[in-house]
């Protein structure tokens, strides 16, 4: 009963305020249009493209947070996967049929290990994923010797030569529908759809909500809580892998330093959407709104040449405002008092 009602809440009743905020942000673009750049569809295409990698991370993060956890390792896993994927695609020139599944498995394995440590080792998610964040970064650097995996390599005379762009890279970095939407955005929307269906239409999804709502109660009512945790973190790892593949394809390199701080952006997007950090309430629909709010704010500030420091301060203020708003919708929730 409670699960059903929270799901409805997440998409309708609770969703109105973030949706209103998104409409407000999008409307603001018409006022601060940055020399009419806002009236050009390419600005919107680029805004969505730029938010997509973060959005993909936020999809997995939503599931983790709904289940009452947190995943700090996604930025590092993104870097690890982008390095591994670049090495396979560029240096070994493996086909996409092999590199993409392999990359996904690396990501899911990282998440799965975190999940197993949390579930069976009974260590706090914050600590486990913090450890994974550091370890995955180390592994990324170890794989490539700390040097970026680039298309450009130095030959014997020290001159740079360019390797051909792998097909997987150019396909992912392409635009569709006459250049009007980025493939990366389509991948993001596909992740949203898959996660949404998994969370709302399957037993697994109901158990995620149950786990985040009350772990003890769900264990007593027969939910395999340990395996649920492993699967949720593995999903987050797989999403980080998808993001890593997109990142590598777009930048045409695997950078072991990439993705630092991305986990916090993903968490911010989830929170701004209105999913409760303590778990059990929220949904992917809300996260989609959160991703678009952050993406559009970023783009509007960007086309108006607002400097970096001001942008960071706005983002901080908006996260705070979102949490304050949440507290008003859920007077029984945490943070009261």
């Amino acid at each position: 009963m409670r699960q059903a009602s929270t799901r409805v809440l997440s998409l309708t009743a609770g969703g109105w305020a973030p949706a209103a905020a998104l409409i407000l942000v999008i409307t603001l673009g018409f006022v601060f249009h940055g020399d009419r750049a806002y009236f050009n569809w390419n600005t919107h295409r680029d805004a969505m493209r730029q938010a997509s990698v973060y959005g993909i991370l936020a999809c997995g993060m939503t599931a983790v947070i709904l289940a009452g956890g947190i995943d700090l390792s996604v930025g590092s896993v993104l870097a690890l996967v982008s390095v591994a994927f670049s090495m396979m695609s560029l240096h070994r020139q493996d086909s996409a049929a092999m590199t993409i599944p392999a990359a996904l498995m690396i990501g899911a394995a990282c998440g799965g290990v975190s999940g197993a440590l949390i579930a069976f080792g009974r260590i706090q998610p914050f600590i486990v994923t913090l450890a994974m964040m550091v370890a995955a970064r180390g592994l990324a650097k170890a794989l490539c010797g700390g040097v970026k995996v680039s298309r450009y390599i130095q030959d014997a005379d020290g001159r740079y030569i360019a390797l051909p762009v792998p097909e997987a890279f150019s396909r992912i970095d392409a635009r569709l529908l006459g250049g009007n939407i980025a493939v990366v955005t389509v991948i993001f929307l596909a992740c949203v759809l898959v996660c949404h269906v998994a969370l709302t239409r399957t037993t697994w999804g109901r158990r995620v909500y149950a786990l985040g709502g009350n772990e003890e109660a769900s264990r007593l009512s027969g939910v395999p809580t340990r395996m649920m945790k492993v699967s949720v973190y593995a999903l987050s790892g797989a999403c980080a892998a998808v993001a890593g593949i997109c990142q590598a394809a777009q930048l045409q390199q695997g950078d072991p330093e990439d993705g630092a701080g991305y986990e916090l952006s993903a968490i911010a997007m989830v929170v701004i959407g209105g999913t409760r950090l303590s778990g059990g309430r929220g949904g992917i629909g809300l996260t989609l709104i959160g991703v678009l709010i952050v993406g559009y704010i970023e783009k509007i500030l960007s086309i108006n040449n607002v400097p970096e420091y001001a942008r960071l301060m706005f983002t901080g203020a908006i996260i705070l405002a979102a949490v304050l708003l949440q507290r008003r919708w859920h007077p029984d929730s945490e943070g009261r008092g």
Partner: peptide, 24 residues
């Protein structure tokens, strides 16, 4: 009162963004 608080927060966001625009 709850609605008012929401308004306050929304206004806050709005004015912050507006400030950014003015700066520009």
């Amino acid at each position: 009162m709850r609605l008012n608080m929401q308004n306050v927060c929304l206004t806050m966001v709005l004015s912050l963004i507006a400030l950014g625009g003015c700066d520009r």
